[in-house]
């Protein structure tokens, strides 16, 4: 509960800013007649959400809210309950308890209107193999009263040349991009994207990020489930860390990183043995540790320069130098005790 209180405080504080930004910039969205949103409430409001599958508690007491014009990240290891949270939020699954409001609407009771204003990208969804991309787009476009500009979406995600192609001939990344286009095709007020950039090459990932930022700038609230720290750091206004069904932290990416407080850390292989005091005497260095052939030095400031100069003066060369600044990933490890990528070989 202690965490939740602090979470509620943080979210209340941070909520105001993106909405205020959007309002100040005059890009408060023109809310469609189909929706009856709460006047100034958050776009997404989830309180004390709980969902179990049999004896498995998938999500327990998760609360957060997302403002219009905010990109909100949900991070967590596999099986943490991210997808379940999202599926409850969009009305695909009824929650066991807790309330969910999307622009003031209950996704279970007001399904029709919720589906009109929420665009969804699901992790596992396919389309008929023998439909052409253009035909799928046309069909989904026809589902909405105020569809978005399809050409713009298709161009932004580099699918313009693919309209005549059969769905089955698309690569994994192209299918992924199509599903992002389809999530945005209805001109949603809220977009929920589950693992949006999984399977995309770096360029396509950046294109997708740019598109999401553009969509956000129109005042759309974006909920982004992601595995990629870089994505969360680059895109998200705030991030929720979910672990074993619990919300363990909710803060800005910078705020979370600050919590990890690790400072800088460098790692290298020395060309020969040296006295640790050579480095521990430096003001930038906090600690020196040995890890097999490797030396791991933690500290602050111009750590790398100071260490390399000191070693050089003693006739030692540092090889295979690696530097990691404290990142969101560190914060994640610290707060959940797990890595996002189990196969990661970073120190």
């Amino acid at each position: 509960m202690g965490i939740l209180h602090s979470v509620a405080d943080t979210s209340a504080g941070a909520d105001a800013s993106p909405a205020a930004r959007a309002a100040a910039a005059g890009r408060r969205p023109d809310l469609g007649a189909g929706a009856s949103p709460a006047a100034d409430g958050p776009a997404v409001e989830i309180t004390h959400l709980r969902k179990t599958y049999g004896s498995l508690v998938a999500v327990d007491d998760v609360s957060f809210s997302v403002a219009e014009g905010e990109i909100f990240g949900i991070l967590g290891p596999n099986g943490a309950g991210k997808t379940t949270t999202v599926e409850c939020a969009i009305g695909l699954r009824p929650p066991d308890s807790g309330t969910i409001r999307l622009l003031g609407l209950d996704p279970q009771a007001d399904r029709d209107r919720v589906h009109e204003i929420v665009g969804v990208q699901l992790q596992e969804s396919a389309f008929p193999a023998k439909l052409r991309v253009g035909e799928i787009l046309e069909e989904y476009r026809s589902f909405y009263r105020r569809p978005a500009d399809v050409t713009e979406l298709v161009d932004a995600l580099g699918l313009a040349g693919k309209r005549r192609d059969y769905y089955r001939s698309l690569s994994g990344g192209q299918r992924q991009r199509l599903s992002v286009v389809l999530a945005l095709i209805g001109g949603p007020k809220i977009a929920v994207l589950d693992e949006m950039t999984t399977g995309l090459d770096p360029q396509a990932r950046r294109d997708a990020w740019e598109l999401i930022e553009k969509v956000r700038d129109r005042g759309v609230a974006i909920v982004l489930v992601t595995h990629f720290m870089e994505e969360a750091e680059r895109l998200c206004d705030r991030v929720a860390l979910i672990d074993s069904g619990h919300l363990v932290a909710l803060d800005t990416p910078a705020g979370l990183t600050a919590r990890a407080r690790g400072g800088k850390r460098m790692r290298f292989v020395p060309s020969g043995p040296f006295d640790d005091r050579l480095l521990t005497g430096l003001t930038e260095v906090a600690a020196v540790q040995h890890d097999g052939r490797h030396v791991v030095v933690t500290g602050t400031g111009e750590l790398v320069n100071a260490v390399i100069l000191a070693l050089h003066a003693a006739g030692i060369t540092a090889r295979d130098v690696q530097l990691d600044a404290s990142t969101l990933e560190d914060a994640f490890v610290r707060l959940t005790g797990t890595r996002l990528h189990q196969n990661g070989d970073q120190p």
């Binding site: 695909l92 589906h115 009109e116 699901l122 969804s125 389309f127 589902f143 389809l182």
Partner: peptide
Amino acid sequence: GPLVSYREQGVLRRLSTTPV
């Protein structure tokens, strides 16, 4: 045939998040 494969592939699930 098509209905079962649509269910298997998540076509129906994706549709149920739209107004249709």
